[in-house]
Simulated scan of single mutants.
Amino acid sequence: MTTRWLTPEEQRAWRAYIAASHLLEDAIDRQLQQDAGMPHLYYSILANLSEAPERRLRMTDLAERTKITRSRLTYAVTRLEKDGAVRREGCPEDRRGSTAVLTDEGTALLERTAPGHVETVRATLFDHLTPEQVGQLEEICAGVARGIQGDGPRTAGDDVPWLRRSSTPCS
Rank of each mutant, 00 (worst) to 15 (best):
M1K: 13
T2I: 12
W5R: 13
T7Y: 00
P8E: 04
R12G: 09
A16Y: 00
Y17W: 12
I18A: 13
I18T: 14
A20G: 09
A20D: 06
L24F: 12
A27D: 02
R30H: 13
A36Y: 01
M38H: 05
L41Y: 05
I45A: 04
A47I: 02
N48I: 10
P53E: 11
P53F: 06
M59L: 11
L62H: 04
K67R: 15
I68A: 06
T74P: 15
T74W: 10
Y75C: 05
T78M: 12
L80P: 03
A85T: 05
R87A: 10
C91E: 11
C91Q: 14
A100N: 02
L102S: 00
A108K: 13
L110S: 03
A114D: 04
A114E: 06
P115S: 03
V118M: 11
V118E: 07
T120V: 02
T120E: 04
T120D: 04
V121T: 02
V121R: 02
F126H: 06
P131C: 13
E132I: 05
G135W: 11
Q136F: 12
L137Y: 12
G143S: 09
V144K: 09
V144F: 10
R146D: 10
G147L: 04
W162S: 14
R164A: 14
R164S: 14
R164K: 14
R165Y: 14
S166M: 07
T168L: 10
C170P: 02
C170H: 14
S171V: 09
S171Q: 15
